[in-house]
Design a protein around this nucleic acid. Structure first.
Lengths: 294, 294
DNA sequence: TCACATCCATCGATAAAACCGATTAATAAT
DNA sequence: ATTATTAATCGGTTTTATCGATGGATGTGA
């Protein structure tokens, strides 16, 4: 058993397709096939079921993949530790991000890349649940998202800032002069909300159902910019976190009253995993950048 | 980086000597030297300092070895999972044991080896602290010892039984008829105790100093059998856990009063590590065997 | 239904690498 | 100074990882 074989196996499992996996691994399909076979012989168990021209992972393969992944990850962490020790400042940072926190990441990202030109940064956008899932499979160094209710003990949570939920409207609307509005008031208005899947939308749905409010949701849009454009028309209102809105968006945001109407922006990472120096530095930038937010 | 290289490196680190490590790995010294060098090149950092003809691990090597060990261990755990799945019932169990619990392990060990002839069992005797240390370096599947005060959170503790500390003497001595004696009484007697390093001795020293007793320790012996022989002479008394003494030893054991005068026999294992089926079965036997003890 | 494309396994050949024995260089021990 | 011990290096050998070609099995589309 060698790490090479474990890497091949993991890629094959991920792709569910030897040919494609081999392509991504820059080896021939024949090599991959042989190496998987060799690994299976050593383990004494098939890792894939060959059904026709397809390969489907077996129960054994499923079980084994956890260990394979962890073995590979430990070895790579060891490498990273020594890279850091040498201050070589090379390598890669992978970040999971939810849409609502794009404006938080952007300035930190720019400053980081300016000062660390030799570090490749990879940002993946998705829902909060997706990002956490991938984090736990070592696909990210950290995830930037709004607070998750369930605190899992293998994760480390760092608070960046809190920000109120706001009712968003076109400037000059009657409500625009108020200092705050209640959730009940908001629920009576024609609403354009982010689509299902967004953490903000999930949060809104939850607080609304808690108060037994069934609001007038006339629009669902899975893009914040388009959402704001709709709001600017003056026909609809929206509910968003204040930090999602910029000056130049040309809309007015009025905080919604209520103690649960604040959301927490969090850095979430794996508790037991090695933290690269570059990642520590990135945290610092994020915290500095987001001081002014919330 | 391959597991092979990590294994070579770990053995070299363990031995502190390439020639010896190579011998144990069944490869030539030249091969080991080359593979270590190759690993160092990939990591960008020397793992050993070459001081004259000696090799001394570097700080980087020290750091890296944790990750290397864990990587190798994860891979081997994965193998073990699949072996178990296949019920091949082959493999190895490694047990750390303190002297005081030899009579507990022995019967379970015999029964286990009768029913699982294809599993190799390795038992290592030593002090409790040594055994725990080795457990944390994946050298054992579990350790059998008396209770450690400091509960470390990466360890799993299973209680086997509790047993009182007893004052041990030759039969027919005046105290032999008593149902119990106090620690103060015992401290006034001429004592023959297990030598430093034994967990029982550490425990005795602790409770004595807690009560500000400075007993009359006239003998220290690092072998229980010889200790008992001395006690049988009638000149000395000893303090031992009741389960350390058998009928055929020809001595009388009187419990010492006091709520802290009971020790807990524990199975200690790594919480996060995979538990082999054979080990689970061994636990069952141990618990069954030790029902009657304490 | 019959080509046709796709996918995995296998085979023989080749390139890469792991490995060995011998030798050298450095150092510690005597 | 001499000898023994140890790690590094060199050249050659063995092992093995890899490749391209091929064949069989299985979907796919005309």
């Amino acid at each position: 058993m060698e790490l090479r074989q474990l890497r091949y196996f993991l890629k094959a499992k991920e792709m569910g397709n030897f040919t494609e996996a081999a392509r991504l691994l820059h080896i021939s399909q024949s090599t991959l096939s042989q190496q998987i076979k060799q690994l299976e012989e050593e383990l004494g168990v098939p890792l894939f079921n060959r059904v026709g021209k397809r390969v489907v992972i077996t129960e054994a393969g499923q079980l084994f993949s956890d260990y394979a992944l962890q073995s590979v990850h430990k070895a790579e962490s060891g490498l990273q530790v020594l890279r850091d020790l040498n201050n070589l400042e090379t390598g890669e940072i992978r970040i999971g991000l939810t849409y609502g926190l794009r404006p938080v990441l952007a300035p930190a990202l720019i400053r980081f890349m300016e000062t660390h030109p030799n570090i490749r940064v990879q940002v993946v956008l998705g829902t909060s649940a997706e990002m956490i899932e991938k984090l736990q499979h070592f696909e990210f160094d950290f995830v930037l998202t709004f607070h998750e209710a369930e605190k899992e003990k293998d994760l480390r949570y760092q608070l960046l800032f809190e920000s109120p939920m706001t009712l968003v409207m076109a400037p000059g609307m009657p409500l625009a002069k108020k200092k705050s509005v209640s959730l009940e008031e908001a629920a009576r208005l024609p609403l354009a909300l982010p689509a299902q899947g967004y953490s903000t939308r999930a949060f809104i749905s939850e607080v609304l159902s808690l108060k037994n409010l069934s609001p007038n949701i006339s629009l669902e849009i899975n893009d914040i910019h388009m959402l704001l454009e709709v709001v600017r028309s003056g026909e609809w209102y929206s509910i968003l976190i204040r930090t999602s809105i910029r000056q130049e968006d040309g809309v007015t945001a009025v905080p919604i009253t209520g103690k649960n109407m604040r959301r927490k922006a969090m850095i979430i990472s794996l508790r037991e995993s090695y933290e690269k120096k570059a990642v520590t530095e990135f945290y610092r930038l994020l915290k500095e950048t987001s001081k002014r937010m919330g």
